[in-house]
């Protein structure tokens, strides 16, 4: 187990968004977290990343406890989150956004070469390297958010709804990138509402509903599980 989430409860005031979530992410694989709006998926991502503090439970990364650590400590341990809605720095250039992603690194030369390598990997960004990130299209911003997260050289890349609001062609590109990164050895933990696409790339998945994990399995099992079929596959929301 690379990441082990155990009985995590995170609350906003009196409302518990996570009511005892347990799941695990295997090293070198793609793990997807599915579930409807309001299930608590983003809350879980922010809890793991150290932005939100859980009321109880534990999050272990390579055996070390992350609960109680600040977000910068989580990043330095090797976890990067591509947040929901991308959250690029709108008034910074593409290149500056990437440099910001390497904030905790001190190896200037390696940072510069990583920026070039990522710009080569994402040609749309290379064309716009001096452009303000706020002027990019949604798909370009998503690529930038992924590239920015990679700048910290994470071992575990978490992605929160990378396909949200993007055209089908761009969504395909994003998933192709996810698979490529995984082949390069980065472990992926991804939240997705697009169950169709997610189950194509995932090795393992969890289903979350109303703050709890209600199903866990591998994509092959899905056809049998009519809960998922009814709720996600082929529904209007899944597209």
């Amino acid at each position: 187990m690379m990441l082990e989430v155990n009985d995590v409860v995170t609350a906003y005031g009196k409302i518990e968004a996570l009511k005892g979530v347990s799941l695990s992410v295997d090293p070198g694989r793609i793990t997807c977290l599915l579930g409807p709006n309001g299930a608590g998926k983003t809350t879980l991502m922010y809890t793991i990343a150290g932005i939100l503090r859980p009321r109880r439970g534990s999050v272990r990364f390579d055996g070390a406890e992350l609960v109680g650590e600040t977000a910068d400590r989580v990043v330095s341990r090797g976890i990067a989150l591509v947040p929901e809605n991308r959250l690029v720095f709108p008034h910074m250039s593409v290149a500056e956004n990437l440099a910001a992603g390497a904030y905790l690194r001190r190896d200037r030369a390696a940072i510069a070469s990583d920026i070039e390598a990522l710009l080569a990997r994402f040609p749309v960004l290379k064309e716009r390297r001096a452009q303000q990130a706020g002027t990019l299209s949604g798909g370009e911003q998503q690529m930038l958010a992924v590239a920015r997260a990679l700048m910290s050289r994470p071992r575990l890349l978490m992605m929160d709804e990378p396909s949200m609001g993007l055209a089908p062609l761009i969504v395909e590109q994003i998933f192709a990138i996810v698979e490529e990164l995984n082949r390069d050895g980065i472990t992926i933990f991804m939240v997705e509402q697009n169950a169709h696409m997610a189950l194509k790339v995932a090795h393992k998945f969890f289903l979350m509903e109303q703050g709890k994990v209600t199903f866990a399995g591998a994509p092959g099992d899905v056809a049998e599980d009519d809960v998922i079929q009814r709720a996600y596959l082929g529904s209007a929301k899944a597209r």
């Binding site: 990043v75 330095s76 959250l87 905790l104």
Partner: peptide, 23 residues
């Protein structure tokens, strides 16, 4: 400077700034 970048990052997008490791 690096510090200036952190200041601008926090001003523009505080959550993302934290995810980049800025305190």
């Amino acid at each position: 400077t690096r510090l200036g970048m952190a200041t601008r990052a926090v001003a523009q997008q505080p959550v993302a700034a934290q995810l980049c490791g800025m305190r």
